[in-house]
Design a protein around this nucleic acid. Structure first.
Length: 417
DNA sequence: CGCATACGCGCC
DNA sequence: AAACGGCGCGTTTGCG
């Protein structure tokens, strides 16, 4: 009754319920882990960690707990007298020692680079390398728990361990991903939506310019740069594209002028001008954001394309900080949530296709990582599976622009092409 | 001793 | 490079 009243029956029936068993299967399947590989990595990294620890203690002129931000602040700013000018405070009012602040001190003392290197290794060892082997089951596979309704926006989450935040970016991260391997005679096949949140923004805002960028298969950052800077596409410089990328990325999080300035560098004026030019180039997006805020303020919730709601506290607050935060959440929720809806629907469609094609026992879903599905597939079935799952994920005839899926495969998660 | 926070940091 | 939106988790620290 309550669901019907809130118009969420379809979200439950058409999106969530059909994937309950699919998620359960993925959990039961698990991911095969190369434990000896992790043990070797652990030894290697622990050696480096110890060496860095000694170097840091030497430069600091004494031993302390490098893992303690409190002690780190006292050493750097009190004992060693490094400048705190322009450094951010933590939420609790202490001098922050997070990476973004420490890099500002790189020129002041060589200890900084060693601290950053230590932090990176410590994080990888404690969270992943030394932890994961203990969680691997008797079957040699790691079985995460995927929380289907773990977030306010509609995304899933993953716990014990969180398989959605396994390192991916830097060189060391790749080394960790390589610990996850496909069964003999199988490969990983990964399908990821390209720029899905920008595409959803284009759809939600009904912005023909942005919709056309995707219809024509153009590079979204270069195209947006061309519109915002008012130059032809072949005159878009590297720096223009970089700036457009920052604003494209920030816009779906409800970014304001201040955070744009912080992220672009330069003066407030320049940031304001760039910000204004963006919304001048995309007036439909400005109008859409305005409408979302107004509607959230009036109704107390936002909706995704498929009717999933998120309710907000603070959207009517008179405290600017509280209200701005709620407004940023309100801007982001339909975008992030619609993407979550789409991939959940795609999970069901992909599963149906595997069944009708008789491939259900040759391809198993392992993970969903927000805009990406990862399967383990029998080698001989890989080409067929690539084709049909890509099709299933891209087939959204009611969405008025193409949803593009990139496909990669490999024997190790850290080595996908 | 266990538990809750603060902090920092991994992912999309 | 970081991180406005969304998460989970390890370590430290302070408290009961």
């Amino acid at each position: 009754m309550w669901l019907k009243k809130n118009g969420l029956q379809k979200v439950l029936n058409d999106i969530e319920l059909p994937i309950v068993s699919i998620i359960e299967e993925a959990q039961n399947t698990g991911v095969l882990v190369d434990i000896p590989y992790l043990k070797k990595l652990s030894e290697e990294y622990h050696k480096k960690l110890t060496s860095l620890e000694n170097k840091i203690w030497k430069l600091a002129g004494g031993e302390f707990n490098i893992n303690s931000p409190k002690q780190m602040g006292e050493i750097l700013f009190d004992k060693m007298g490094l400048s705190t000018k322009g450094l951010k405070k933590t939420a609790g009012g202490s001098r922050s020692t997070r990476e973004s602040e420490l890099v500002k001190l790189k020129g002041e003392h060589e200890i900084i680079e060693h601290i950053l290197a230590y932090r990176e290794l410590q994080k990888l060892l404690s969270t992943y390398i030394d932890n994961i082997p203990e969680m691997v089951g008797k079957d040699g596979r790691l079985h995460t728990t995927l929380n289907q309704t773990g977030t306010t926006t509609g995304r899933m989450s993953s716990v014990n361990p969180n398989m959605q935040n396994i390192p991916a970016r830097n060189g060391l991260g790749e080394a960790i991903r390589s610990a996850f391997v496909a069964e003999k005679g199988h490969s990983f096949v990964a399908f990821d939506y390209s720029q899905i949140e920008m595409r959803i923004l284009a759809v939600l805002a009904k912005d023909e310019k942005l919709i056309n960028v995707f219809k024509e298969g153009k590079d979204v950052h270069s195209s947006v740069a061309s519109f915002v800077f008012g130059v032809p596409e072949d005159k878009v410089t590297k720096d223009m594209r970089r700036k457009a990328k920052v604003i494209n990325f920030g816009i779906i999080y409800g970014m304001g002028v201040n955070s744009l300035k912080a992220n672009l560098g330069g003066t407030r004026r320049e940031a304001q001008e760039f910000y204004d030019n963006y919304f001048k180039a995309f007036p439909k997006i400005a109008a859409y954001f305005d409408g979302v805020k107004k509607s959230a303020n009036k109704k107390g919730f936002t909706e995704t394309i498929f009717g999933r709601r998120r309710y907000f506290k603070g959207i009517t607050s008179s405290i600017p900080y509280i209200r701005s935060m709620a407004e940023r959440m309100a801007i982001n929720a339909p975008v992030q949530g619609s993407a979550a809806d789409i991939i959940k629907i795609a999970m069901k469609k992909a599963d149906d296709r595997l069944k009708t094609e008789g491939l259900k026992d040759k391809a198993h879903l392992l993970l969903q990582i927000h805009d990406e599905l990862i399967y383990e597939v029998e080698d001989e079935a890989v080409p067929k599976v690539k084709k049909i799952i890509k099709e299933a994920m891209e087939h959204f005839p009611d969405i008025e622009l193409p949803l593009t899926v990139n496909v990669t495969s490999g024997k190790r998660w850290g080595d996908m092409k």
